[in-house]
Simulated scan of single mutants.
Amino acid sequence: MPTALITGASAGLGAEFAHQLADRGADLVLVARSRDALDALAGELAERRGVAVEVLVADLAVEADVARVVARIADAARPIDVLVNNAGFGLPLRFADNDIADEVRHLRVHVEAPMRLMHAALGVMRGRGGRIINVASVAGFISRSTYSACKAWLIGFSRWANTEYAPDGVTVTALCPGFVHTTFHSRMGLAEGQEGVPRILWLDAPYVVRAGLRAAARGRAVTIPSLRYKAIVALSRLVPRSLTAGVARRGRM
């Protein structure tokens, strides 16, 4: 059985990745900050899907916790075949209004942690094969504060890594959804209606995860679920950055 490690697995896209990978017969290592949520999900998946599920409680903004996840990934005796870097969160204010400590934590979770986990995974996957899925965002193609900057880095790094390590049998895919029905926005204290985003732009988590897994299986470096968001990204390349930045202030992708 393949084994998949998923960060941010307690809810949203992370939990959906866990369900869909378990449906495909993968054993799981679930990583998140909330033990209660992880234990509940692990129990459900083990009972209903019959897969082995390991729980690893970790805050990826904390050095010691990242080191524990890295150690698990680097354990060649229990190799990870699929790594899903999904953990993330949004900040409610504009950059200058957020506490700088929150901005630094945001950077660690969105950039440093995926980089370190990928480094550990590549050390085990090269030569034996594996898949890495980095949950990025359409925001990575649009100018918007540190969230967009972090996602742009993840997209660019995934493009390079997918080409670099394809000869070693490893694929690296950046999954770039737009607005998704998850708990991402509510954790910032925002209801979906408060985002000012048309209903047509919201995507369902199962659809997004299926698109990500399909793209990874095909070895694609970047995938944008839905034609509407592909059109938005194409259009964003043709209009001034000041315009896309202004539109992006209406909500977080």
Score class of each variant (00 low, 15 high):
196 G>E: 03
188 M>A: 13
220 R>L: 07
165 Y>P: 04
197 V>R: 10
182 T>L: 08
166 A>D: 10
174 A>I: 11
165 Y>M: 04
218 R>L: 01
173 T>M: 05
209 V>I: 05
193 G>E: 13
161 A>P: 07
205 A>L: 08
192 E>I: 06
155 I>N: 12
160 W>E: 13
209 V>Y: 00
202 W>M: 06
197 V>C: 10
208 V>H: 14
199 R>Q: 10
206 P>M: 00
230 K>C: 00
160 W>A: 15
176 C>N: 01
164 E>Y: 06
196 G>T: 03
189 G>H: 03
156 G>T: 15
214 R>T: 01
229 Y>H: 13
191 A>D: 00
159 R>H: 04
231 A>S: 03
225 P>M: 11
185 H>M: 02
174 A>F: 03
225 P>A: 04
156 G>W: 03
180 V>S: 05
231 A>T: 14
213 L>Y: 05
212 G>W: 12
170 V>F: 02
193 G>W: 01
177 P>Y: 14
203 L>P: 01
204 D>K: 15
157 F>S: 15
162 N>D: 15
228 R>E: 08
166 A>I: 08
221 A>S: 15
201 L>I: 02
157 F>A: 15
212 G>D: 07
186 S>V: 12
157 F>G: 09
212 G>N: 12
170 V>A: 05
203 L>R: 09
229 Y>Q: 11
196 G>Q: 14
171 T>A: 09
196 G>V: 04
201 L>G: 04
